[in-house]
Computed example of a mutant assay.
Amino acid sequence: MPIAVTDYTWKESELDLTIIIPLKGVKGSKADIFSTNQYIKVNYPPFLFEVHLFALVVEEKCTAKVGNGVIEFVLIKQEPGTWGRLNSEESKEKSVMVEKRREAIEHVQKTASEVVEQKAKKKKEEETFAIRQQMKLEEDERERIETIKQSERDKAERELEAWKEKKKKVRIQAQPPKSQPQTTKSSGERNVIFKSDKKGQSAPPPRKSGSIQVRFTPRVFPTAARESKAQEEEEWLTKQAAARRITKDKDNSNGDINERNPEFLKDKGVDFFRTGNYEAAINAFSEAIELNPNLPQLFSNRAACYLATDDNDKCINDCTRALELFYPVVPSNYMSRSKVFVRRGTAFANEEEYGLAVQDYEAAVKLVPDDDSLKEDCVRLRVAYENRCIR
Score class of each variant (00 low, 15 high):
R144A: 13
L86P: 07
N191V: 12
K198P: 01
L160M: 13
T82G: 07
K198W: 01
K195A: 13
Q180T: 10
D140W: 00
Q134P: 02
R158P: 04
R171F: 08
Q150N: 13
R102A: 03
A112G: 02
V192Q: 06
K198V: 08
N68W: 03
G81I: 05
K167F: 06
P176Y: 03
W83Y: 11
N191I: 12
I105C: 10
F194V: 11
T184C: 05
E79K: 06
T128M: 01
A162L: 11
T111W: 00
E138F: 01
L160K: 05
Q173L: 11
V74K: 09
A162Q: 13
A120Q: 14
Q118I: 02
K166F: 10
A156G: 09
K77E: 06
A112L: 11
L86I: 14
K121H: 07
F194P: 00
E79T: 14
I145P: 02
T183M: 06
R190C: 14
I172E: 05
V116G: 00
A203M: 08
K92T: 15
V170R: 13
Q133A: 08
W163C: 07
E141D: 11
G84A: 15
S179C: 04
V96S: 02
E127F: 15
V192E: 09
K136M: 05
P205S: 06
P206D: 09
E152W: 10
E79C: 02
S187R: 07
K124E: 10
G81F: 02
E141S: 15
T111A: 04
I71T: 01
K65P: 01
K155E: 10
E159F: 03
P177F: 15
E126P: 00
D140Q: 02
N87P: 09
K110E: 14
S196D: 10
V115I: 14
A130I: 00
N191E: 12
S95W: 02
S186E: 15
